[in-house]
Design a protein around this nucleic acid. Structure first.
Lengths: 197, 197
DNA sequence: GTCTATAATTTGATAGAC
DNA sequence: GTCTATCAAATTATAGAC
């Protein structure tokens, strides 16, 4: 457990938050195994021992980054029942996270490293997927966009949408061209079978 | 450049091949940054200095693993024009690579670590995506499965299929349940818009 | 909260004997 | 081809001063 964020300061720009910002951007670029306390510290203008003050172990920092990422993402999505065009809204939200400076969805990075992750961190990545699948299921069913009424099909479609976006990010990264993501996302949005069947 | 495989022995079970096997399984589980020469050596029953004999630098080993992986995968796919149901065949080939012991598609792992990779290794991951997209394009067009005749749409669909599978693997891994991959893949295969439009 | 200092381990890599 | 020995650097983490 982190000693941070419990009895610290009041608002949004504490040192712990700055550390989280930096760590998040590093993990989303290079993976959990691709960032170090020293690099985070260096960018935050402090020493690595000070990072340990806020987050005792690396896994604590990893968990905190992932939790905050997921919460912020779900917050941005809002009420799944409220969106008139949930698929487009979801794609837009996902796309907004691809900053062009090499950052990809945290859940995608962690999923690829899954077996090399501390269990608590892997659990956070799982939580992201579960919440996103649930949001999509709810949104699709509320809008009657499912290609059937069966629950199994609903969940399958939700997972398919999530998979396309995570995968498109990976493929676009490999090809070194972010516009590939937009191309694929457009293909998803246009897919007829998600509108009627 | 590796000193290996050039003037070595004749056939398939040289020590270099054994090293490649071990390294591949480690990378596909834990990523490029998640394996070490020492771990490879330990599993091969030799010392890390001996691994360096076969592959001077870590990037050499990474490149060799990725090249072999891609070549083997494309080989298994065969002629794109020959398959009567290329989508099903492709999904099956992709699925065959998911061994259940935590190994995922090498290209997916590398894509997630992309910015933390030596350039030569990243280039191999790119090659995998390009060859796979080209195979799918060719197969779809040969079978008239594209939802239009335009080349742009063809490529888009090829990239979409690749993305779904890479993403499904990531999502399934995060959820800790490989059957999720099969569910999503089934959703892809059933998708009407890939059959007609 | 941040620092210095340091421990303990791991890592990629090389030199040179056999 | 494989070994021992070793290096230089990086890593996670802790102790204790300020």
């Amino acid at each position: 457990m982190a000693a941070s964020k419990a009895g610290t300061s009041k608002a949004g720009t504490s040192k712990a938050d700055e550390i989280l910002d930096i760590a998040e951007s590093l993990v989303r670029r290079n993976g959990y195994n691709g960032f170090s306390f020293r690099e985070v510290a260096s960018r935050a203008g402090i020493k690595s021992a000070s990072v340990h003050y806020h987050f005792p172990a690396k896994s604590d920092l990893g968990v905190a980054v992932a939790r905050r990422y997921t919460d912020r993402f779900m917050d941005g999505l809002g009420d799944p029942q409220a969106s008139p065009d949930p698929l487009t809204a979801y794609v837009a939200a996902f796309r907004a996270g691809l900053t062009g400076d090499g950052q990809m969805c945290l859940c995608g990075v962690l999923g690829a490293e899954s077996t090399a992750l501390p269990a608590e961190v892997a659990a956070e990545a799982k939580r992201f997927c579960e919440l996103n699948a649930a949001w999509l299921e709810c949104a699709l069913s509320a809008r009657g966009l499912a290609s059937g009424a069966q629950d199994a099909s609903l969940r399958r479609q939700a997972l398919l949408i999530l998979s396309v976006l995570e995968g498109a990010m990976i493929v676009a990264r490999n090809l070194g061209d972010l516009t590939v993501f937009d191309e694929i996302a457009a293909g998803l949005t246009e897919a007829r079978y998600l509108r009627r069947a």
